[in-house]
Simulated assay, not measured.
Amino acid sequence: MIKYVDPIPPILRFFKSRTDYHIDANTFQSNISEGLLVRSAGGIGFSRIQLIYRASEESEAMSKLINCVNLLEAQSSSIQSLRVEWCEREGNPITSRDDDTDKPEAWCYMRLEHLEA
């Protein structure tokens, strides 16, 4: 039996090694005005991951989120400590505003199928 592994830490290391973006897990740090947030959003037999990019401009948030989505889809098999079988977005990225900071954000759900799910 393969034991469950929290996919968030390996995904954080993956993005940190491939981007120069500020990256947080589960919640943004209170002083962050720009960066990527990676958090778990459920899934049974797979991991649903939500990627959120916060920036000063809506177009920048969307552009950088799309870079992250494409990077994760294309190179997910390179994530250390996870045996990824498949990764895809579950819909198109969506723009929004953070309720607390009123900063523009873009977000997307990703389906990550890995043996440890």
Rank of each mutant, 00 (worst) to 15 (best):
M1F: 07
I2Y: 11
Y4N: 05
V5T: 14
V5F: 06
P7D: 03
I8Q: 07
I11A: 02
F14W: 08
F15I: 03
K16T: 07
K16E: 15
R18Q: 14
T19G: 10
D24L: 03
T27A: 08
Q29W: 03
S30G: 05
S30W: 03
I32T: 10
V38T: 07
V38W: 09
G43V: 08
G43T: 11
A55K: 03
S56F: 14
E58R: 12
E60F: 08
L65A: 10
N67K: 12
V69F: 06
N70I: 01
N70F: 02
A74R: 14
Q75W: 04
Q75V: 00
S78P: 00
S78K: 14
R83W: 00
V84D: 02
V84P: 02
V84K: 09
E85R: 14
E88W: 01
R89C: 02
E90V: 00
E90K: 03
G91W: 06
N92I: 00
I94T: 11
T95S: 15
D98G: 06
D100C: 08
T101D: 02
D102P: 00
P104S: 07
Y109M: 08
R111Q: 08
R111S: 10
R111P: 01
E113C: 04
E113Y: 10
H114C: 09
H114A: 12
L115T: 02
E116P: 11
